[in-house]
């Protein structure tokens, strides 16, 4: 069963980071750069991975792309729009409509059931769910292979939880999927299954996918792999660089 790209999803566009810099702050004052002079372009529908040592700024880069933070220098653009210039409300709105996020630790709401977790991003605007939302959530749950619709996701295995998280990231049909170490807390086989899901979803819906990861198996499947070292993207994009 496909993830189904439908006309309502956010329009695909290129993501462009131009000379992005983010400073570390100590007591409100800049104390060195976390990210420096980042230039990165994701064409619509492209899958790009960023790897690098811990503390290199990978997660901060992802947060800058998700407009969760405003870079101290440079711009993050979606198509022709400079998203990083927007006030917080507008960035929240853009993130809701455009971005699907997958976290390393799944970040489900453990007290809610599978379907409620998947529906969560739809709760942020209307009081009532859009028509067909529940059916779509069930279809997504089936697509990511969750048959047992547990009343509490806390009862699910880690692999199942991450698959629910992927379904949650897809419920609003995002044009940009962001995944922060999506396989890092899973064993190899489970991780591979989650990786399959993410890549299939991106391909089938035409969404761009930006993955931050250490997982060689996952990096190997990206169109491009960038290496982030001490807040800077080093040299040329490396393809399948991380193979052991």
């Amino acid at each position: 069963m496909p993830f189904s790209a439908t006309p309502e999803r956010a329009a695909a566009a290129a993501l462009r980071l131009a000379r992005v810099g983010v400073d570390r702050r100590e007591r409100g004052r800049p104390a060195g750069a976390i990210l420096d002079d980042i230039d990165l372009v994701l064409a619509a529908g492209e899958t790009v991975a960023v790897t690098g040592p811990s503390g290199a700024g990978k997660t901060t880069l992802l947060h800058a792309v998700a407009a969760l933070l405003r870079p101290d220098r440079g711009t993050v653009s979606w198509g022709d729009t400079d998203v990083s210039a927007w006030p917080e409300r507008q960035r929240d709105r853009w993130r809701r409509d455009t971005v699907g996020l997958v976290f390393q630790d799944f970040a489900l709401v453990p007290e809610l059931g599978v379907i409620e977790n998947i529906l969560l991003p739809l709760r942020f605007d209307g009081f009532r769910l859009p028509a067909e939302a529940r059916r779509r959530a069930e279809a997504l749950a089936a697509r990511v292979g969750i048959e047992m619709l547990a009343p509490r996701t806390a009862a699910l295995s880690r692999g199942e939880q991450q698959r629910v998280a992927v379904a949650r990231a897809l419920i609003r049909r995002p044009a940009l999927l962001l995944a922060d170490e999506p396989t890092a807390s899973l064993d190899a086989a489970t991780g591979a299954r989650v990786a399959d899901l993410l890549l299939d979803a991106a391909r089938e819906t035409g969404a761009s996918l930006l993955i931050v990861s250490h997982d060689p198996a996952l990096l190997a499947r990206a169109d491009r792999v960038h290496r982030l070292v001490a807040g800077r993207l080093v040299a040329e994009p490396l393809v399948a660089e991380a193979a052991p």
């Binding site: 929240d92 709105r93 993130r95 809701r96 969560l120 991003p121 942020f124």
Partner: peptide, 14 residues
Amino acid sequence: RYAVLRALGASRLY
């Protein structure tokens, strides 16, 4: 939990 909600697109008001 609340930071995750914001990351998923919830507004401050939510």
